[in-house]
Simulated assay, not measured.
Amino acid sequence: MTWHFTEHPAAFRAAAGTHLAAEPARNTAVLTLMDGADRLGWWAEPDGRVTGVLTVSPSGALHLGATTEEAALALAVRAGEEPTEVRGETAAVEAYAKASGRPWRPVVRMRLFRLGEPTPPDPVPAGRHRVAGEADVPLVAAWTREFATAIGDEPAEDYTGFVTERISEGRLVLWETPEGRAVSMAAVSRTIQGQARVHLVYTPPAERGHGYAAGATEAVSRVAAGAGASQVLLFTDLSNPTSNALYQRLGYRPVTDHLGVEFTATGR
């Protein structure tokens, strides 16, 4: 039993493809990050079965996909493997963090949801959705920076390329008022292995309380299903009961809980 690593997505797919396909929802982060990862890894059992996968991002963050606690423990004791942040399913991340011997603290607790029976917002918010276009790039880039700040991330200087990719591929929708004013947005990842993940759900503070995010989320979920996603997923922050309740009203159902931890010099 051992971890194997590569910098080549094609080699990773060849080795871990069966595992990724068997659990596309639980592997959603790895599936959507693997083409831009600095490094990819898989844990092989004595019979060759893969029971753990990971990506290491350019920033050095480690993301675990569906991974056994045994594999996470083995990863934690590898010499020189010292990421500053680890994210993944709660049991595997806790096993890794405790076995590392390094001070750490939880930074986010999330829940992965999968869309079951789609349910339109009730009441339906005023206005309608539309797929964002090129002219919307400046607004969406500004909102994306606000979104990053709101969730506690360090915002990038420029999100133009990030949002242009999503807009040019028809993966970002805006909710606009009857007068045509954009008031909310939601995006979805590319469909990979039959799964796509909703993200960038954001409404500026002055526009909240009218159900616009529900309208945008329901609309982009339909975009994902229309693009061939058999599993439409999203993550929620467990500290935000409003968003957790909203997504369940739209038909999303819990899959598994996730944890993000940060390693520190001084402990918790």
Rank of each mutant, 00 (worst) to 15 (best):
H4Q: 04
T6S: 14
E7A: 02
A11M: 11
A16C: 08
H19A: 06
N27M: 06
T28Q: 06
T32E: 10
T32R: 14
D35L: 10
G36I: 00
A37L: 07
D38G: 09
A44M: 06
P46M: 07
D47A: 00
D47P: 00
G48W: 15
T55N: 14
P58G: 09
S59A: 12
S59Y: 09
A61P: 00
H63S: 11
L64P: 13
T67P: 06
T68P: 03
E70P: 02
E70I: 12
A71Y: 00
A72C: 11
A72Q: 07
E82L: 10
P83T: 07
P83A: 14
E89D: 05
E89V: 09
A91P: 03
A91T: 10
A92W: 01
A92H: 09
E94M: 07
K98T: 01
P103S: 08
P103A: 11
P106Y: 12
P106M: 09
R111F: 09
L112M: 01
R114A: 04
L115E: 01
G116C: 15
G116H: 10
G116P: 02
P118R: 10
P118Q: 08
P118H: 04
P120Q: 08
P121T: 07
D122F: 14
V124T: 09
P125R: 14
P125E: 08
R130D: 00
A132Q: 03
G133Q: 04
G133P: 15
V137A: 11
P138G: 15
P138V: 01
P138N: 11
L139A: 13
V140D: 06
A142I: 04
W143P: 07
F147Q: 04
A148N: 15
T149N: 05
A150M: 05
P155E: 08
A156Q: 15
A156C: 13
Y159D: 12
F162E: 15
R166G: 08
R166H: 04
R166N: 05
S168F: 15
E169Y: 13
G170V: 04
G170T: 05
V173K: 03
V173Q: 05
E176H: 09
T177K: 06
T177M: 14
E179R: 15
G180T: 11
R181K: 09
A182T: 03
V188K: 02
S189E: 15
S189H: 02
R190I: 03
T191S: 02
I192S: 08
Q193F: 11
G194N: 08
R197H: 13
R197L: 14
H199Y: 10
V201W: 05
P204E: 07
P205I: 05
A206Y: 04
R208N: 07
H210S: 13
Y212H: 10
Y212P: 00
A213W: 01
T217I: 04
E218W: 06
A219I: 03
S221L: 15
R222P: 01
A229R: 10
A229D: 13
F235W: 11
S239R: 03
T242Y: 03
T242G: 03
N244W: 01
A245F: 02
L246S: 01
L246M: 10
L250M: 11
L250C: 07
L250W: 09
G251P: 12
P254I: 12
V255K: 11
T256C: 05
H258Y: 12
G260L: 01
G267D: 03
R268D: 15
